[in-house]
Simulated scan of single mutants.
Amino acid sequence: MRIVFDLGGSVIMPENPSSEKIKEYAKVFKKLKDEGHEIAIVVGGGKTARDYIRLARELNANDSLCDTLGILSTRLNALILAIALNDYSIKKIPTNFEEAEIILSTGKIPVLGGTHPAHTTDAVAAGLAEFINADLLVIGTNVDGVYNKDPKKFKDAKKYSKLSFEELVNIAISSSLKAGSSSVIDPLAAKIIERAKIKTVVVKGEPEELLKAVKGESDGTVIE
């Protein structure tokens, strides 16, 4: 199976990043690769990006420069994971989908960060999944699925176990417009998932949960 993993920056690079935790992620990806799956990974910016963007804004940087810093930050995080993957990956972070596909064709695991200004890494992961005709997109976030509102703020938030592509788009758009609601997938990523009809699983971004998502054993949200 050809799989794209979308790892949120706050998952792979939290407040206090741990080399041991990054090794755990690498172990999961190596295991899946050894089982015969083709894997590509997109990594978010997390605290790394937030810190640089905050500093840039304090220095009166415009949004375009902040986008550039955000992309560079995601690529730093991607390189850390690529290093942990050892010979399963290469120490060159692709800057576009074509480069990622070339690395994939050599039997290695491409690890990407951002590619386009104003695009989230969710959108990059969805776009990459479409570009390489992935069978599955696994989104690892700091919550365990898609909810009707932010579960960290609202105790009565409802998690969806399954969604259609159209339902995902409607939730993503609604969440981007309404205060007090939250979606873990941005509208552009949702639209790409819908048009390409990519089976997607949203899970808590822990190593074991990523593995369960591939095996069909996750209790996250399945979109198909």
Results as ranks from 00 to 15, higher is better:
L76A: 13
T95R: 12
G127V: 07
V184S: 14
E38C: 01
G44W: 03
V201L: 11
L76M: 14
L163N: 08
L81Q: 06
G145S: 05
L72H: 06
S164A: 07
Y147G: 06
G45L: 11
L69F: 15
M13E: 11
P151F: 12
E194K: 15
N60W: 08
N62W: 03
E166A: 05
D156V: 06
A84W: 00
G216I: 10
E35I: 01
L210I: 02
K178M: 11
N60T: 09
F154V: 14
A134M: 02
L168H: 06
D34G: 04
L137I: 09
K158V: 15
F5Y: 03
T141G: 02
A49C: 10
K191G: 15
K158T: 14
L76Y: 13
I22K: 12
P110S: 07
K159C: 11
E130A: 14
G45R: 09
L72T: 06
L168Y: 08
G70A: 13
N60A: 09
A26R: 09
V203N: 00
Y147S: 05
K91D: 10
S176H: 12
I103Q: 00
I193W: 11
S161Y: 09
K197V: 02
S105E: 15
E217F: 07
K91N: 12
F5E: 02
D67L: 06
R50M: 03
L112K: 05
V111A: 02
E101F: 04
I53R: 09
S183L: 03
L163I: 05
T141F: 04
K152W: 02
L188E: 09
R195E: 14
K212I: 01
I41S: 06
I93V: 15
N77A: 11
K199C: 07
L210P: 01
A82M: 08
E209W: 01
S105C: 06
K197C: 10
G113I: 13
K108W: 07
I90F: 03
K162T: 12
T48C: 15
K92N: 06
G8N: 12
D6V: 03
I109V: 11
N62Y: 04
I223P: 03
I193G: 10
G114I: 09
K159Q: 13
G8Y: 14
